[in-house]
């Protein structure tokens, strides 16, 4: 009889004898994976939505008066001194008026009595994609405010700030649930294995006395840890996928979810979550066994 044949037989026997405890552990692991993956999925989707929104990010510098061609060149130079930008566009008073009228659509007649130069001239600055963090955007906006003739700088501050803080909050939740996953999975598996060891102490002692090697005693427990990690994470991810399908089916095309495409984890992340779960559960099992084998 070779080593692995004996080990698989032992593992099968253990699982049969302690299946209720094993099942409860699997459920706990899957719940931990589900909680973590749920927040992580939202986080990833919000980040990708944020990327799309910041693709449209532009800073508008309102000017006291319309700059002439020479002044435009000077301003262009000044802006480029701070950082390279993707595009700088000067908007004249008339152009601002026609844009506004266009935005009003059918209601544009409210502007009939207004002079075409009542809106201020402005510069539209589209930063490079590398300018992503809130502090960088703030710095750039403060710099633009110091330009000669600058009246006010706008980039949807409130919205950008709220979005930024929301993603910060989400990353904390993801981090916390990640830590929770690590602690719960490791602790639960370690406890289960400890209970199993306790229940089978007599047998394990006997195995030692008849000459079983530490690997012979330990490996079935490690396999149990691997199985708990694998099955637990697969259950958790499958539940999340079902939940994801339900959400996309019931909420697609409506309001908030219409802002971005809600996508599931790519295969790389799925594999990483499963692998991490297996590693954690095996580590929990290993530590319990080490304590026993040291006695």
């Amino acid at each position: 009889m070779n080593f692995w044949f004996s080990i698989f037989r032992q593992t099968g026997r253990n699982l049969r004898q302690t299946w209720t405890t094993q099942f409860m552990t699997c459920l706990t692991v899957s719940l931990s994976v589900l909680i973590f993956s749920f927040f992580y999925l939202i986080y990833l989707n919000i980040l990708s939505a944020g990327d799309k929104v910041t693709d449209d990010l532009r800073l508008v510098v309102y000017l006291d008066e319309e700059p002439g061609p020479e002044m435009q060149e000077q301003l262009r130079l000044k802006i480029s001194q701070f950082d390279q930008v993707q595009e700088i566009k000067f908007i004249s008073r008339e152009e601002a008026y026609s844009r506004f009228a266009e935005q009003l659509g059918d209601n544009h007649d409210v502007l009939t009595d207004m002079p075409t130069d009542f809106l201020p001239a402005s510069i539209e600055v589209i930063p490079l994609k590398t300018l992503r963090s809130l502090s960088q955007i703030k710095l750039f906006s403060e710099y633009l405010a110091t330009l000669p003739g600058s009246q006010k700088v706008q980039y949807g501050q409130n919205w950008v700030e709220r979005f930024y803080y929301f993603t910060q909050l989400l990353s904390i939740v993801v981090l916390l649930s990640g830590v929770l996953l690590i602690l719960t999975a490791t602790f639960m598996v370690a406890s289960t294995i400890r209970l199993t060891i306790f229940a089978r102490q007599e047998e394990l002692e006997l195995l030692k006395l008849v000459g079983a090697t530490n690997n012979y005693i330990r490996t079935p427990f490690l396999l149990e840890g691997i199985l708990q990690g694998l099955i637990g994470s697969l259950l958790g991810l499958t539940s999340l996928y079902i939940l994801f399908q339900w959400i996309t089916r019931h909420f697609s095309g409506a309001g908030f979810l219409d802002l971005f495409t809600f996508t599931f984890f790519p295969p790389g992340i799925i594999a990483t979550i499963i692998l991490s779960s297996i590693v954690l559960c095996t580590a929990g099992s290993y530590t319990s066994m080490q304590k026993f084998l040291r006695i």
Binding site: E202, E203, L206, K208, L209, V210, G211, A212, T213, N214, Y216
Partner: peptide, 17 residues
Amino acid sequence: AKLRQRVGMAYQDFRLL
């Protein structure tokens, strides 16, 4: 472990499973 495999012991309290 190898040494114990070469030693068989029948215990007074049997130690049966």
